[in-house]
Design a protein around this nucleic acid. Sequence first.
DNA 1: CATGAATGAGCATTCATTCAT
DNA 2: TATGAATGAATGCTCATTCAT
Lengths: 205, 205, 205, 205
Amino acid sequence: MRRLDPVKHEEKRQEILAAAKTCFARDGFKGLSIADICQEAGISPGHLYHYFDSKDAILDAVGAAALEEGARQFAQLVQSGNALSAIATVIEEAKQRNLRTDFILFLQWAAETHRNPKLAAKLREMSKTTRSILANFLAKGQQNGLIDPTLDPEIAATVLFGILDGVRMMTVRDPKLDMPKILDAIKILVRRFLQPATGASAPRS
Amino acid sequence: MRRLDPVKHEEKRQEILAAAKTCFARDGFKGLSIADICQEAGISPGHLYHYFDSKDAILDAVGAAALEEGARQFAQLVQSGNALSAIATVIEEAKQRNLRTDFILFLQWAAETHRNPKLAAKLREMSKTTRSILANFLAKGQQNGLIDPTLDPEIAATVLFGILDGVRMMTVRDPKLDMPKILDAIKILVRRFLQPATGASAPRS
Amino acid sequence: MRRLDPVKHEEKRQEILAAAKTCFARDGFKGLSIADICQEAGISPGHLYHYFDSKDAILDAVGAAALEEGARQFAQLVQSGNALSAIATVIEEAKQRNLRTDFILFLQWAAETHRNPKLAAKLREMSKTTRSILANFLAKGQQNGLIDPTLDPEIAATVLFGILDGVRMMTVRDPKLDMPKILDAIKILVRRFLQPATGASAPRS
Amino acid sequence: MRRLDPVKHEEKRQEILAAAKTCFARDGFKGLSIADICQEAGISPGHLYHYFDSKDAILDAVGAAALEEGARQFAQLVQSGNALSAIATVIEEAKQRNLRTDFILFLQWAAETHRNPKLAAKLREMSKTTRSILANFLAKGQQNGLIDPTLDPEIAATVLFGILDGVRMMTVRDPKLDMPKILDAIKILVRRFLQPATGASAPRS
DNA sequence: CATGAATGAGCATTCATTCAT
DNA sequence: TATGAATGAATGCTCATTCAT
């Protein structure tokens, strides 16, 4: 007598989701077909419906995963070190092909929030969490005298977060930009923004 | 038998394109149908094919228009005044609903460049042009001593451009952010970034 | 410039309905497919949906038509003559193949009313109308002294109507029955049922 | 290794058949699915195929059972009493909900005989048997002088049987009919039909 | 120029059936 | 005996595209 194995079920679900993500990255909303996902996942069309109720359900899951993945990666970076170096890391990684692809997937789902309130809520929540992590670091930095105390940590975090999105947008707009130089400029930008104002201000760079 | 009137022909083409843009904004890639565009444009499906060869042709045109529109608006702003106030203007307009919609449309097309080399080239070109305009202003500012001469104008322009994208992404991530406060912070950010380093620097806020 | 022609549209609709009826008679609920109807009607599957919203809409229309047809045929018979001879006519026609087929179609739709309230209402209404026609004849017969005045015309009409259904059920149960003999017996049955009671009752044939 | 237990096997078969009948009554030909039957019967789809070769096999069995059930009930009634009171009983029971449902099931299978010769043979045979039982009673009644001797017992039985179907059709056509009144009329009808013609006939009501 | 009837390939989805366990 | 994961052919339906008028 066989029993339902929820672990295997969930594993298969994730496999299918991964296949769907691959297909979505390749084909976008227009070209994505159940048949393609099934081929990619190595299952039959009928079987796919044991794991997902509909194509929309798959898309929602792919979208949610894309948004979560974006936040997760960032949160990991920030939590495992200094916020500023985390920003630098993100910038450096922005050059990598797969991260660029991930960001492009993210863009499509961010746009899709315009039509999908559930996804919109998820994106808002994810962004809030990430911003909070950043804001905490900034607040600590202010206590240590490393960061301009006149800045509102929450607002400054939002701005820094925006800069990260901006950097990643650069690579979408033009993948051939001279990112090392830009990274240096961003570092200057961030330092000047966060640096406390000193009477005898340190020489600038 | 009537003669072809190229002017009227082009007008109609633009009408259809506008209708397609409206439908695309409403329905996205998934839900966009020729029938809907025809209804929106008030013409019959057969007639639409006098103006466009295929659905893809319409989509390409809508995408190209979306990318061009983004650049055009920015160029107008910048050319008609001071670069910094132009940035402020863009930021302030980011709050407006239709600009947010336009940016979401732009996002989808930016993502689509991943699959469409022609669009990718267009986006790269548009971004380059805009960046150059910005770089020119910065260079002039440096000549006038208003802007830190140690900055590479091209790189700094890229960074500022990225900040604009980042600001607009903020409103996509969370439409309820306190944008006026953020705008103030951005102004500080930009000022500190561009400001020439002077021994007796103006007080910092 | 072509105009919508509602007449042609309705004609085509009826053609498709006829094709659907043919297929339904051949295949029943189980085997009925849109593809078959299209082949029978000589149109493409896509085109069928210009005339009907869904397969269910077609089935509903076929069902309604089947119920209406049943009532229409009967009403015509009854209105064009004497009620009793009409019954005889129906009985005689029950032998004919196509009428038997029509009745079998009717049976399926009558059964379907169990699941379809709209159809149920239609069947009830149709039956009511037919019964009323019959009841009127009986009432007139009573005024003329040809029919037992102690009978409630409405109830008697219902019973006679039931007998008609019963006769048609006979041919479904066993198509090889000796219908002429049965017809004679039914005539006796009906005569004895409706005949006024006379003190010196006429010899009973 | 357990041995096959033919008794248990048959019991399970009947359970499944009962489940299938329930589902068929609920969903009809269109909506009936193996999955539903399995859920209703509390077994797995794979297991069902130990008892039936195919869905069609189940349907055939359900159909045969429905036809047999109809005849069986009637035969019981008739055999255990007087034929006329049996008819009255059937009529009275026609009001009951489950009998109405049974008759509707019967209708669908009667219609299905149009496409299924095996079922057609079964229906013919069942009807013949029931008719014979009725005919025997009528013949006995004729010998006892209770029934008009000029009637052909076989034909009269067929007619009475038809009336029963007709009565049941009434409740399908309109469940809100005044059945008690109709029942009285049917009793009059039957009495007048079967009553021997006597010079000094009993008063007619 | 303009229509909308007509097409048919393509798609998501269902479901009877099989089979490894 | 019993399960339910897995299959894949079949089905209803959509929609970009064509064409007679």
